[in-house]
């Protein structure tokens, strides 16, 4: 009986194994073009950028191979003068760099927090049933559809100190008594950047959260209502916990975007020290000053910070980004 079973089972088992092997082999073939492409356009340039950060490469020496390996000197370098005084040089002791780090962190935390709260509000509104919901949803998508460069220009015009509509509205409402130089003044430049960023990316946040909201079964609210539980309590006890995964994922996507922000700040507040971020500073070092060593050191540090952030977030939040475990 048992031998009969095994003779029956073995040919099929052998066949499925072959089929499975064949599929796995095909899978590797299918993945190869993409992987080769990513190696060329992403992995190799990343490796080269990191390498540059250990050399004294400049715009002139980057192509002729005359740049020299200088170890960690771009990051931190101890210099002893002839009179014995010690001076530290390099990105890690650079005031401008730490200013940029602080700006980036400040910007990321405030913008992502505001976008999450406002995105949640907008998502809750869009999740309710009311007349014209389709139109409102369409309207909300408009800021998302507008290129960042265009929205930077549009808002730059609206926030203009002399002719801007924002100042005009606030003057008429007596909120301010004289026009504010939003993008030029160091006190308000960051606020200006935050306004534009929140305006532009809240729709993205709202849509991600809305998708999470729509997966919560309606009858859950129904039964809570019948039981006479206050809506706010339902929100805190039912909606928010169920939304947690969706919000966590949305927050990580946005935070990564915020940490690398470049376009908006480069265009809206190009001169301001109070908004310059890691990406913008690194770009200035590379393109304007042609210092490929130090510029690459900055971009490498930014890369490390972002990688560290992602690992930490995945560990702490136990976010299943790959969707494999569902």
């Amino acid at each position: 009986m048992s031998s009969d079973k095994s003779t029956n089972a073995s040919p099929t088992a052998g066949k499925t194994l072959n089929l499975e092997q064949q599929r796995v082999r095909a899978a590797y073939m299918f993945l190869a073009p993409m992987l080769i492409m990513l190696l060329i356009v992403a992995a190799w340039p990343l490796f080269r950028s990191i390498s540059f950060s250990f050399t004294d490469a400049t715009a002139n020496t980057i192509f002729n191979g005359q740049s020299e390996w200088i170890g960690f000197d771009n990051y931190v370098e101890k210099k002893v003068r002839s009179n014995g005084t010690v001076r530290w040089k390099g990105v890690l002791v650079d005031k401008d760099w730490w200013n940029a780090v602080w700006n980036t962190v400040r910007f990321s935390i405030v913008s992502v927090a505001l976008e999450t709260i406002l995105g949640l509000l907008v998502a809750l509104v869009l999740n309710a049933e009311f007349k014209g919901r389709g139109l409102v949803r369409a309207a909300v998508l408009i800021p998302w559809a507008i290129p960042t460069i265009v929205s930077a220009r549009m808002w730059g015009w609206m926030l203009n100190d002399q002719f801007g509509i924002i100042n005009e509205i606030m003057l008429t409402l007596h909120l301010i008594d004289k026009p504010i130089a939003w993008t030029a003044s160091s006190d308000t430049a960051m606020i200006a950047v935050l306004i534009v960023d929140v305006w532009k990316t809240t729709p993205f946040m709202a849509l991600l959260i809305l998708a999470g909201l729509q997966m919560i079964p309606r009858d859950m609210y129904e039964s809570a209502r019948i039981d006479g539980i206050h809506p706010l309590r339902v929100f805190w006890r039912v909606t928010l916990p169920l939304l947690r995964p969706a919000i966590l994922v949305a927050v990580i996507f946005r935070a990564l975007d915020a940490l690398r922000i470049f376009d908006l700040i480069y265009l809206l507040t190009p001169q301001s020290d109070s908004t310059i971020t890691m990406s913008v500073l690194s770009y200035r070092e590379l393109q304007q000053f042609g210092d490929y060593g130090e510029g690459s050191a900055m971009s490498t540090l930014l890369f490390l910070i972002i990688t560290g952030f992602v690992l930490l977030y995945i560990k702490l939040g136990r976010v299943d980004l790959s969707g494999e475990k569902s």
């Binding site: 990513l38 356009v41 992403a42 950028s49 470049f262 990406s279 971009s299 890369f303 990688t307 790959s322």
Partner: peptide, 19 residues
């Protein structure tokens, strides 16, 4: 793959410029 899509463009800029 997800990581590649999210890492900062500036991190590959000088290497890509060379390429």
């Amino acid at each position: 793959i997800l990581g590649v899509s999210m890492f900062p463009q500036i991190a590959v800029l000088s290497g890509l410029y060379e390429l």
